[in-house]
Every structure is written in C-alpha cells, then in structure tokens.
Design a protein around this nucleic acid. Structure first.
Length: 238
DNA sequence: CAAAACAGCGCCTCGGTTAC
DNA sequence: GTAACCGAGGCGCTGTTTTG
C-alpha cells in the first residue's frame, strides 16, 4: 500500500464516487478506478461494494480509513514542521560550550537570538574544550564554543576573540592592585592550575619555569570557574 | 594500470490518458 | 470498469573517461 493508493482510497471514501475522487485528485476517472482495483488486490479484500452507481465501503474499509486519516494528519504535521524549519520558525539548536562560556557569555547572546526566532529551542551542553569539539564531531551538538582550538578533520572553526590571560588573586592578597603581575612574584605561592588538557596550562608552566618561579600546585581543574571559586575560598592563587 | 565515476542505452514498471 | 496505449523515471548493463 503506497502513498498514492492511500490518497485515492481516502478521496473515494470521502466523496463516495470514483468520478468525484478523480476530480479532486486532478486525474481522470479510469486512473482512480485502476488504482482502486490495484489497492484491493494488494489488500486481499474488497474495500467497496459496487451498488448500482454508488460505492459502499465495507467494514474493513471503514476501519482502514480511520488509520489512513490518522496517517495523513501525521503527514500534514510533517509538512508544517518542514515549512517551519525552512523559515527557522521551529527547531532545536544544540550548543556545546565550556562552562564559563555557557554561564556568562552565551546568555547575553542567546537572549536577542531567541527573540528573533521565538519558535526555536536551544539546548546548552556544558563541556570542556576537547569534549565540545567531540560533541560537534559526532553530531551531538550543532555548534560548539571552546576556550581553545581543537584541530580535527571534519571540524571548521574560527576565532571569536583572544582574551587576555589574568592572574586571579584572593581579596587582600599582597599583589592585589598591581597593574601587571610578574612571573617571578608567584614563586612559592599556593597555585590552582588548569588541567593538563588545557594548552594554556603548558604555556603558563613554561612561562613560570623560564622565570624560575615554580609555584606549589595544590589543585588542578579543567574549569576556570572552579579555579576562581577556589581562589575566593582562599585556597591559593590561579 | 586498475578502480572509480560518469554517460548512454534498452528494458521494465508505474501512473496517466483516450476510446469503448 | 476495462483495454490499449503513452510518457516519465528507475535500474542494470556496457563503454568511456578520469583519477590515484
């Protein structure tokens, strides 16, 4: 039973005659007649009783019609969804982003975006940078915003901004107020480091090593926001 | 030079029409 | 409602061209 047969069957059920069904479907009466006969052969039962000039549906046809009508409602729904997607009125956008991006930067961007596209829904996934790239690569996310570039075949990336690297200090620390913190000044400090997976970690490590100021790393974390909270608690500097 | 991609051709099926 | 016919499109086969 194909879609065309369903269309023909529905038209005959609703209009009662092959001729009227043909008019609705913009084909000739024989086309509908032939399609109906083919459908009945495939179904293995008669859908209509030929009663002089009328076609009377059998109980099997009545039952089938209920299902066919339901199928066409689903088809109409699909058509509307496709139309909405075409005009960006509806859909689900999955964005993978690092925690700091998802909690601070993205909300400011998403608010005006969702105002422009009220039918859209956005799913935010909080991941580290390699996880963000992996999510996009495997199709679990439509786009990702990571802290650093993760080169991978099949991924297209662009730099959105290049922010400064800063030293995070707890209130009252001796270095608070300095316009620039020299690497040497960090010697012996309790240090909250970024996890080794972050390329910034290697850059900071080599910079401190070159300055001969190796701090005491007490915690390492993949999340900059966690590092900041640890600094707030007085665990160390970051 | 082998494998992959492409184009052309004939055959078949499907859905349509006209004529009856 | 049916028979005969027509055109479009899918599919498989074959030969040619391109590519690594």
């Amino acid at each position: 039973m194909n879609l065309r047969q369903c269309e023909v069957f529905r038209a005959v059920m609703e209009l009662g005659t092959v001729t009227a069904a043909a008019e609705r479907l913009h084909v000739t009466q024989p086309a509908v007649s032939k399609m109906l006969a083919q459908l009945e052969r495939e179904l293995g039962f008669a859908a209509f009783v030929r009663n002089r000039r009328r076609l009377l549906p059998t109980p099997e046809a009545e039952a089938l019609y209920r299902e066919v009508r339901r199928a066409f409602l689903s088809l109409d729904y699909l058509t509307r969804v496709a139309c909405d997607l075409r005009h960006l009125r509806q859909g689900n956008l999955v964005v993978a982003a690092t925690h700091i991006m998802g909690s601070h930067y993205l909300p400011e961007v998403l608010a005006p975006f969702l105002e422009r596209h009220p039918g859209l829904r956005v799913s935010l996934q909080s991941l580290d940078s390699p996880g963000t790239a992996q999510a996009v690569l495997t199709g679990r996310a439509d786009l990702g915003i990571s802290q650093f570039e993760v080169p991978a075949p099949g991924l297209r990336s662009e730099v959105l901004c290049t922010p400064d690297t800063v030293c995070v200090l707890p209130p009252g620390h001796r270095l608070v107020g300095e316009a620039c913190v020299a690497a040497e000044a960090l010697a012996g400090e309790r240090f909250i480091a970024l996890a080794a997976v972050n390329p910034l970690r290697a850059a900071v490590d080599s910079m401190l090593e070159a300055a001969g100021a190796v701090p005491r790393t007490v915690v390492d974390t993949p999340l900059a926001s966690t590092a900041c909270r640890l600094v707030m608690q007085g665990t160390g500097i970051s």
